[in-house]
Amino acid sequence: MLTFVGLGLYDLGDISVKGLECVKCADAVFLEAYTSRLMGTDVPAMEAFFEKEVRVLAREDVEQNPREILDCAAKGRVVVLTGGDPMVSTTHADLRLRAAAAGIETSIIHASSISSAVSGLSGLQNYRFGKSCSVPFPAKGWFPTAPVETIAANLALNLHTLVYLDIQKDRYMRIPEAITILEEMAQKRGIEPPDLYVGIARAGSDHPAVAAGTGAKLKETDFGPPLHILAVPAELHPMEREYLEMFAGL
């Protein structure tokens, strides 16, 4: 049996009662920690809270060689913990497909997701979001422009864009850096950069940071520690504008 358990957004208080009971009863517990991370806790705290060993998975352990996970799940009850909601990432959907193909029963215990939290914190209506994108850290000889092209395509359809920011082993992209990168992408592609952004930091914590404004304004805003995420709004509905004025300093 393989169960995907969402941890929610920020710390161990976000896991559901159902998810906690599942972890407590598991024979083996794995943590996928490269697509998202809970900044309000760490692995030792998880092990103390769950009273279980938590084995941390690298990208290749899930995407290329998940044999250890599948072998354990074929023999007993296995939990794969994920930040946010388990099936937001296609990586987890692929692992579930592999398990099902191997005859292993699977299930999902959902949790809060950044995709819904952004709507709640910003007031941007969830049904008005188009395709999302991710801004990666540039590397030598590699500077993709697909994110700004996605934003431009959404804006042409009057749709908001959720912009995920890169997470590496010990490096987290911040909102000002992401905006600078997007502006450089826009210049490279000959596209007008967005004139309005909404930046959100530490969604799910007791003190999230939310600010809306121009790129110049948000690059000067101190959002504090990660994780950070961006939204690029399309034309604002009057209620969206009022919400941003009230809660995000627009």
Rank of each mutant, 00 (worst) to 15 (best):
K18T: 11
E21K: 13
K169L: 13
P136L: 14
L9M: 14
P194Q: 01
K169W: 13
L20M: 14
P136M: 11
S116C: 13
V232M: 03
I109E: 06
C22V: 12
P44R: 10
G199I: 12
V88M: 05
V29P: 01
R189C: 13
I15K: 03
L121T: 01
A74S: 14
Y164F: 15
A156T: 03
A139E: 15
V88S: 07
F30I: 07
F49M: 10
M46L: 01
L227D: 07
R37I: 15
S122G: 04
L121K: 06
D85A: 07
M246D: 10
A231C: 14
E240Y: 07
A93P: 00
T90K: 08
K131W: 10
A211Q: 11
L95T: 02
Q168G: 06
A212H: 00
R202C: 06
G8K: 05
V78Q: 09
Y10L: 15
C22N: 08
A212V: 05
F4D: 02
Y10T: 13
E63S: 05
D11Q: 09
S113P: 03
Q168H: 14
G120V: 05
G123R: 00
G83L: 05
D85Q: 07
D94R: 09
Y10S: 04
I109K: 02
V118H: 12
S115W: 15
A231M: 08
A146F: 11
S107G: 15
D27E: 12
R59V: 13
E220R: 15
A26G: 11
N154A: 03
I69A: 05
H207R: 13
G76H: 08
D42K: 04
V163G: 06
D166I: 10
K24S: 13
K219D: 03
G76Q: 11
I151Q: 04
L182T: 04
L227C: 00
L97Q: 12
P86M: 12
G215P: 01
R171S: 07
P238H: 08
F247K: 13
D206K: 06
F223T: 10
R77W: 07
L97V: 12
V29G: 00
D166V: 13
L165A: 02
A111M: 04
H237A: 10
A100C: 10
H207W: 11
R67T: 14
M246A: 15
L162N: 02
E32R: 00
A33P: 02
L12N: 11
I181R: 00
